[in-house]
Simulated scan of single mutants.
Amino acid sequence: MPFVTDDPNMLDDWLVVGPASALAGRSQRQPYGTCLLGATLSLWAEADGTPQCRLGTQPLSVQSRHGYLWVCPSGRPARPLFEFPEYTEPGRRLVDCGGIGVAVSGLRVIENFLDMAHFPFVHADYLGKVPHTEVARYEVAIEPATGEIWATDCRFWQPRASAAHDSGADVRYTYRVMQPFSAMLYKSSLRPEARDAIGLFLQPLDDEHVIAHTVLAYFDDVSSDAELIAFQHTIFGQDKPILENHAFKRMPLEGRAETPTRGDTTSVTYRRWLRERGMRFGTRAAT
């Protein structure tokens, strides 16, 4: 098998492999090359813009949506790619924050994305600040129609919630996990009636390495693209060394290797959701 896993959770799903803009000017003679699950892929666009993908001489299923390229390694997707309605909503700023390499299981990166408890300690003076450390109760459920995880009624006091904020505020959050390696965050925006959206889409290179692609769908007519990207890079730059220094690079789904607290309700749900899917890729066997 050309890929480093036989886990159907990875082979039979749509996995991000880079921004759609990477195909600009690319042809079959000069394709865009990237890695997925240990294999090197070649991608290009036909004259009409239709994306193509090959692994050696084998064609793979590929589509361009939400500003990114998505490949199904097996060619037999178990489900359609998730919806992202905010991406096409009028008035939103769409900003691709680029891809950042992280040397840890992608499951760790998603779990960190869902964790509010670390805000005051890892993102001090941005997303949190001591003594505002309590994670208020919130609700977590799995949507029956889509199988997605939704965490609602989340709130946390933040000194600077985004590039456009210059003072502290009680920020409202909603988290959504669509795939093991894809999640969304909806948070208070400059428009009181609306929420900004952040998409985190992970490209799995192997069990312990990913490229994290982040896209913003914001209502922000104050910040420049460079300011929005710089803010996201600052936050991710604070997370990256913590993630890469985990005792276990792969996520343990069984046993008591790590003990959750009350603020970890979303994480507990995420791990249970992964176990129920039979997730093996990026996980650590119980000891």
Rank of each mutant, 00 (worst) to 15 (best):
residue 56 G to S: 01
residue 55 L to M: 10
residue 262 R to E: 12
residue 22 A to W: 07
residue 255 G to S: 11
residue 201 F to E: 11
residue 213 H to W: 14
residue 133 T to H: 02
residue 169 A to L: 11
residue 78 A to D: 11
residue 173 Y to A: 08
residue 109 V to S: 03
residue 286 A to S: 14
residue 100 I to D: 14
residue 34 T to H: 05
residue 12 D to Y: 03
residue 206 D to G: 04
residue 157 W to D: 09
residue 67 G to T: 09
residue 50 T to I: 11
residue 68 Y to W: 12
residue 251 M to F: 12
residue 192 P to F: 04
residue 173 Y to W: 15
residue 145 A to K: 10
residue 78 A to L: 08
residue 91 G to R: 07
residue 81 L to M: 01
residue 151 A to E: 01
residue 186 Y to D: 07
residue 134 E to F: 12
residue 99 G to P: 06
residue 267 S to M: 04
residue 88 T to R: 14
residue 156 F to I: 07
residue 260 P to G: 04
residue 132 H to P: 00
residue 282 G to E: 10
residue 173 Y to T: 09
residue 226 A to H: 10
residue 279 M to H: 02
residue 105 S to R: 10
residue 162 S to K: 10
residue 21 S to T: 15
residue 203 Q to P: 08
residue 148 E to L: 01
residue 23 L to Y: 03
residue 146 T to F: 02
residue 203 Q to W: 11
residue 7 D to G: 12
residue 180 P to Y: 08
residue 30 Q to G: 04
residue 76 R to M: 08
residue 237 G to W: 06
residue 8 P to K: 05
residue 255 G to R: 07
residue 240 K to S: 00
residue 243 L to G: 01
residue 146 T to H: 02
residue 217 A to S: 15
residue 51 P to V: 05
residue 248 F to L: 15
residue 272 R to H: 10
residue 49 G to L: 09
residue 29 R to G: 15
residue 63 Q to K: 14
residue 155 R to Y: 09
residue 208 E to I: 15
residue 73 P to E: 09
residue 100 I to E: 14
residue 12 D to G: 05
residue 203 Q to D: 07
residue 270 Y to G: 00
residue 194 A to E: 15
residue 87 Y to K: 06
residue 129 K to R: 15
residue 77 P to R: 03
residue 141 A to Y: 14
residue 81 L to W: 03
residue 215 V to W: 05
residue 45 A to L: 07
residue 62 V to K: 00
residue 201 F to R: 08
residue 171 V to F: 00
residue 100 I to Q: 15
residue 220 D to Q: 06
residue 205 L to N: 08
residue 210 V to A: 07
residue 169 A to P: 00
residue 255 G to C: 09
residue 37 L to P: 11
residue 200 L to A: 14
residue 121 F to V: 10
residue 103 A to V: 05
residue 127 L to F: 14
residue 239 D to M: 06
residue 29 R to Y: 06
residue 285 A to P: 02
residue 52 Q to W: 02
residue 4 V to Q: 11
residue 145 A to L: 08
residue 38 G to H: 07
